[in-house]
């Protein structure tokens, strides 16, 4: 009886170590992450990733979408660095006063080059893109999850 118990525990331990090799490594960004690539690629900069989740923890939607005047459309605001430096859009907070200043280029310009403007995981993306499980990024295709490759 005691043997069986030890054996069960041993089996569990073995299973845990086996799981290690089975954990799938799919690539999935946050719901609502916006990639903005109006000018970045042409300017030789990485496209911008705007994390909605990070900002809504700290601000209500109204602050950016009513007070600062961001339209509800990814890529629809014609944001440029000069406008930001003059205090428009991101520059209304990212001025070294309310939030860190724009000198920290790489904190926003952080998407792989060539990533198109998009709202990540949006319904529209699911309806339009051929396969929603793959990120729209052209540079870094997702590694298919181990679970789905075995389905073919």
């Amino acid at each position: 009886m005691w043997h069986r118990k030890v054996r069960t525990v041993a089996l569990c331990a073995a299973f845990v170590s086996l799981l290690t090799t089975l954990v799938a490594t799919g690539a999935h960004a946050e719901y609502g992450d916006v990639v903005i690539n109006n000018y970045s690629d042409t300017a030789g900069m990485r496209p911008v990733v705007f994390p909605h989740w990070f900002h809504r923890v700290r601000f209500r939607c109204k602050v950016c979408h009513a007070d600062i005047g961001f339209q509800f459309k990814a890529g629809g605001n014609d944001i440029t660095m000069l406008k930001i430096i003059d205090g428009e859009f991101c520059g209304a907070c990212h001025n070294g006063d309310i939030a860190w200043p724009v000198e920290n280029c790489a904190l926003c310009h952080s998407a792989p080059p060539g990533t198109p403007t998009q709202v990540h995981e949006s319904t529209l993306q699911k309806l339009v893109s051929p396969d929603s499980s793959e990120p729209v990024s052209t540079k870094k295709p997702a590694e298919p999850a181990a679970a789905t490759t075995s389905e073919k």
Binding site: V6, V9, A10, A13, A14, V16, S17, V23
Partner: peptide, 19 residues
């Protein structure tokens, strides 16, 4: 079994822990 258990336990700890 005790030895096997100890070894497996060690193995599961030393292996990279799943996320």
């Amino acid at each position: 079994f005790m030895i096997l258990f100890a070894v497996l336990a060690f193995l599961s700890v030393s292996a990279p822990v799943p996320k």
